[in-house]
């Protein structure tokens, strides 16, 4: 009897602990919706999402976040476009071809890269990358969408590489032996068998990478110039995240509420990305 009681108590404790995480997600969603909706309604959904000018403090105030939305989309796509192939091929090399020593060194470097705070990425980007872009493309200012994309693509490398390596190493050796025994070369085996078998793990790596990029604020504030322009590769831009982070401190009234609305849009963004990619991963697993 005593054992049964103990079991029940333990189960209840685990249930409560498990519910804490779920509870916070619900709390955050709830809070964002409550505080984000009023400004959207006041400004008008269409005007808020698709108007091109963000001028919260000017006498003719305007709250259009299209520049932020597009900048976030372009920035994320650009970072994934650059970071994914590099990360993927590094993972393939490190898990299947690299000598043990190189793998060890590279893996500790990658772990270190993952642990570097984003403000440091921003700082290095600001001191090295931004002046470099300014010189190479002879621009008045190097702080630009391009700088942000490059920093972001570097920032997603660790998660893409680490998760992909785990996925590739989890592929049973027997698959690879079978392929080699049929006369396939090692490269053929890796790309036609191992990568195929690991594709849902690699897709997970992409999801993690994308979510990290979409949510990144500090580093992009430092290298993107943080001006609410419509996005263009060599111009200063502002992301959804940096809009919230940089203006929250001094905003008030409708401006402040509009920032909550931006946060809500950002939140929806991440939800949509997660759901779409998870849908593809699940479908792959079944097929």
């Amino acid at each position: 009897m005593k054992n049964k009681l103990f079991e029940n108590i333990m189960q209840a404790i685990f249930l409560i602990l498990g519910l804490i995480a779920v509870g916070f997600v619900l709390l955050i969603s709830f809070y964002l919706i409550i505080s984000g909706i009023p400004a959207i309604l006041e400004i008008g959904v269409f005007k808020f999402l698709f108007s091109k000018s963000w001028a919260p403090t000017s006498p003719q105030e305007n709250f259009g976040i299209l520049p932020f939305i597009l900048t976030s989309i372009y920035g994320t796509s650009g970072a994934v476009l650059i970071g994914l192939p590099i990360g993927f091929f590094s993972a393939v090399y490190l898990s299947k071809f690299a000598p043990k020593k190189i793998k060890l060194i590279a893996e500790s470097a990658i772990n270190l890269l993952a642990g570097i705070p984003s403000v440091v990425y921003g700082l290095v980007g600001m001191l090295v990358l931004v002046p470099l872009i300014k010189i190479i493309f002879s621009l008045p200012d190097g702080a630009s969408l391009l700088a942000a994309i490059l920093v972001l693509s570097l920032m997603i490398l660790p998660s893409i590489i680490k998760v992909s390596i785990n996925a590739l190493e989890a592929v049973p050796k027997e698959y690879e032996y079978a392929s080699l025994a049929l006369g396939a070369t090692e490269t053929e085996t890796v790309f036609k068998v191992s990568v195929k078998a690991a594709k849902s793990g690699i897709a997970t790596a992409v999801v993690l990478g994308v979510c990290r990029v979409v949510g990144e604020a500090v580093a992009v504030i430092m290298v993107s110039g943080n001006v609410a322009n419509m996005p263009s590769l060599f111009q200063s831009v502002r992301f959804l995240t940096s809009a919230v982070a940089s203006e929250m401190a001094y905003s008030s009234g409708l401006h402040r509420n509009a920032l909550f609305s931006i946060a809500l849009v950002l939140f929806l963004f991440i939800m949509i990305i997660n759901i779409t990619l998870n849908f593809f991963i699940k479908r792959d697993r079944k097929g």
Partner: peptide, 26 residues
């Protein structure tokens, strides 16, 4: 050489693909 001398392993190890693709792989 391995194409000429094929191998069947102790534990059945079909690829995680369709039956058709398993055979067509080689």
């Amino acid at each position: 050489l391995r194409r000429d001398i094929g191998m069947v392993f102790q534990k059945p190890n079909p690829f995680p693909m369709s039956i058709y693709d398993n055979i067509a792989y080689g």
